[in-house]
């Protein structure tokens, strides 16, 4: 369980987040959505202690302020939106960095195979020897995901759920790899772990999330299951454009299209 209460983040004179309360349950994929500047990434960075904030964050019932980075690294892994790597590490060396978090040297010897397994899962097997700097944006994003996955490889460890925090994990990916990554998140949650993901694509969110928090102007507009949150009124108001939800032909998940938003030739002029 992630329980963030009364989170407020102020940068300069601007209140980026205003008294936000956010919960996420283990065993579920929880998505944070909202228009640009609504505070999605800031919320993720606040609940992962990357930026100063007021309010409290608890992970599995423990206030994160009372935990060391070493202790936190064993229960949660965080995938940033974009990550630069300062030196020419190979893909394998990068992924192995995730392996070292919170594990003893003896454990590490036993787990030498994990980086390969993680790379295979994100579709990068065979890329072990390549330099990070030589990868495409999408490959780099998946290599970083593999690093994050090996850090919390078992979704539940000693009866405690572990957490994946993903900031726009599919932003640089083609449609096939978007599905690969979202299925990894689903599988992690299904096995008992918790996933919190900042998402841009509402339809992917609708397909893969169990719970959605819709942010608008630094506040929670609505929170709940996708078929509750994704309604014409809230979406159109938040995103500032006419949006209509429908259901996809082969499922009951809400499907969002910018119908009636195509400007007529007169309007363009």
């Amino acid at each position: 369980m992630i329980s963030a209460k009364n989170i407020t983040v102020t940068i300069g004179a601007r209140k980026i987040l205003d008294d936000v309360t956010f919960d996420a349950a283990a065993g579920k994929v929880t998505a944070i959505v909202g228009p640009n500047g609504s505070g999605k990434t800031t919320l993720l960075r606040a609940i992962t202690d990357e930026i100063a904030h007021s309010g409290t964050v608890a992970i599995n019932g423990t206030d994160t302020v009372t935990m060391s980075s070493a202790a936190l690294s064993t229960v949660r892994a965080v995938l940033p939106q974009s990550g630069t790597v300062a030196f020419p590490f190979t893909v394998l060396e990068l992924v192995r960095l995730g392996l070292t978090a919170g594990r003893s040297v003896a454990d590490l010897r036993m787990l030498d195979h994990l980086p390969h397994a993680a790379l295979k899962r994100v579709g990068l097997d065979g890329f072990e020897g390549q330099l990070i700097q030589g990868l495409s944006g999408g490959e780099r994003q998946r290599a970083q995901l593999a690093r994050v996955l090996v850090q919390v490889w078992e979704p539940v460890l000693d009866g405690t759920p572990r957490w994946l925090f993903l900031d726009e994990p599919v932003s640089a990916l083609d449609i096939g790899h978007q599905l690969v990554v979202m299925n990894i998140a689903r599988a992690f949650a299904k096995a008992g772990g918790g996933v919190v993901a900042v998402m841009h694509d509402l339809n992917l969110t609708s397909m893969f999330a169990d719970h959605v928090t819709l942010l608008h102007d630094g506040q929670v507009r609505v929170s709940g299951a996708p078929d509750v949150v994704f309604n014409d009124t809230d979406l159109s108001a938040c995103y500032g454009c006419p949006l209509r939800t429908n259901t996809a032909p082969t499922s009951t998940a809400p499907w969002i299209l910018p119908q009636s938003a195509i400007l007529t030739p007169e309007a363009i002029q």
Partner: peptide, 21 residues
């Protein structure tokens, strides 16, 4: 050594990898 490796990914990531940056 381990901390410097982690730091190559930036300070926030190093902290998430368990380093007291």
């Amino acid at each position: 050594a381990r901390a410097l490796d982690a730091l190559a990914l930036g300070e926030p990531v190093a902290a998430h990898l368990g380093i007291d940056v």
